[in-house]
Simulated assay, not measured.
Amino acid sequence: MIRRILFVVVLLFVSVWPLSAQHIPSDEEIRIGIIGLDTSHSLAYAKLINQTDSSSLAGLRVVAAYPKGNPDLATGERIPEFTEDVRKLGIEIVGSIDELLARVDVVMLETRDGRMHLEQALPVLKAGKPLYIDAPLAGSLGEAIAIYEAAQRYNVPVFTAEPLRYTPKTQAIAEGKVGEIIGAATYSPAPTHPTHSDLFWYGGHGVAMLYTVMGPGCEVLWRVHTQGTDAVICRWEDDRLGTYRGIRSGKRGYGGTAFGTDGIVRLGGFEDYLPVVLKVGSFFKSGKPPVSAEESLEIYAFMAAADKSKRLGGQPVYLEKMLANTRKEARQKLEQILSERN
């Protein structure tokens, strides 16, 4: 079962992640660096960290940023604009990841193109810097696994999460507002991009909401695809059912419904970035990722399995098999990259 495979993975990660002092900066101020200024998240997160009066963010400061993103994506055109806006906050703009690492204690990887994340994450991990990776974690499931394999190798904690995971309404449900969750249905915009697996590009917002309330343990899923809509039906190992609806036509939004033992309640949509930034701050202070490696990898296995189900015309795809088949490929890719760098 998927829980068994992921449990073994997590045990391996935990056994080599003692969260020693080398991962938790001892300086009075924890200096944060940003990689990637091709997304509005970079500017928004930097402003919140440097300007919010919150005990969770006290002692944290964004001090440097490396702008490089993918100029071929639409957001890449805004790199000069975002770079200037970040510079106005008093944040130093540097010319390479190595320059950034020499100035900071921890890193936020914000590059919009998930395909660049593995390459950009490796020097951060090798330098021993705790790393937050904004969504999408990677451009493929194999690259997502490779990032965690590298984190294990270098004994560095990694945290990734969608902002919608931490909306107050969704968190209240996850914490038991309607009792035990027996099912959930979520929806979000799901435009696609030819460079990424379909749901990796934008659908991950709604999938993350589904996992926030349901937790890990999805066993099998089926995907129905049309030009304007995706519908993914998924069965958890304990026979609970969840659904995700990806919207490409008509009115778009974020939300859903959670079905609990004590009530049925709507899931909240996006409000602001502060809740996820507070979690990032807590992670940098403690060295403990708020979302487990197990759950993070399963979310990307879910989205990769949905792509495979689409290719198979809606046939069922089991996540355990998807992870097992991809892990060997991921390890080979990581070894190849590391050998080329050496």
Rank of each mutant, 00 (worst) to 15 (best):
E162V: 02
G269W: 04
L109R: 09
I34L: 15
K177I: 00
Y154N: 05
V16C: 08
R252I: 05
F159A: 03
P316I: 08
E77K: 15
L73I: 07
L338K: 05
W201G: 02
S188W: 10
Y202G: 00
G256S: 06
V232M: 06
F302P: 03
V178P: 06
F159E: 02
G128Y: 12
I93T: 05
E149G: 05
T83Y: 01
L37C: 03
R4I: 12
F302K: 05
A184S: 07
L334W: 11
K88T: 00
I79T: 15
G176N: 10
Y166W: 15
G176I: 06
D134C: 05
V207N: 06
F159W: 02
V265S: 12
T192S: 13
I24C: 08
S26M: 11
R252C: 01
Y202V: 09
P168I: 02
E271H: 02
L274F: 00
G33N: 11
A121L: 09
C234V: 15
V220K: 14
G114M: 08
L109E: 15
G95W: 02
K321T: 10
S339L: 11
G139Y: 08
E335L: 15
L312T: 10
R327C: 05
L19R: 14
D239N: 14
P275T: 03
G268I: 01
K68Q: 14
V277M: 00
D239A: 10
S292E: 02
G179S: 08
W201N: 13
I49C: 07
A293G: 07
V104M: 10
K308Q: 13
Y300Q: 10
T229L: 09
K310T: 14
D113V: 00
I133P: 08
R252Q: 14
L267T: 04
D307G: 14
D239V: 01
V8G: 04
S140H: 12
V317Y: 09
G313L: 09
I35T: 11
G183T: 11
G36E: 06
A304N: 12
G281A: 06
P18C: 06
V207H: 10
E143Y: 07
M214A: 09
A102Q: 14
E84C: 03
P80S: 07
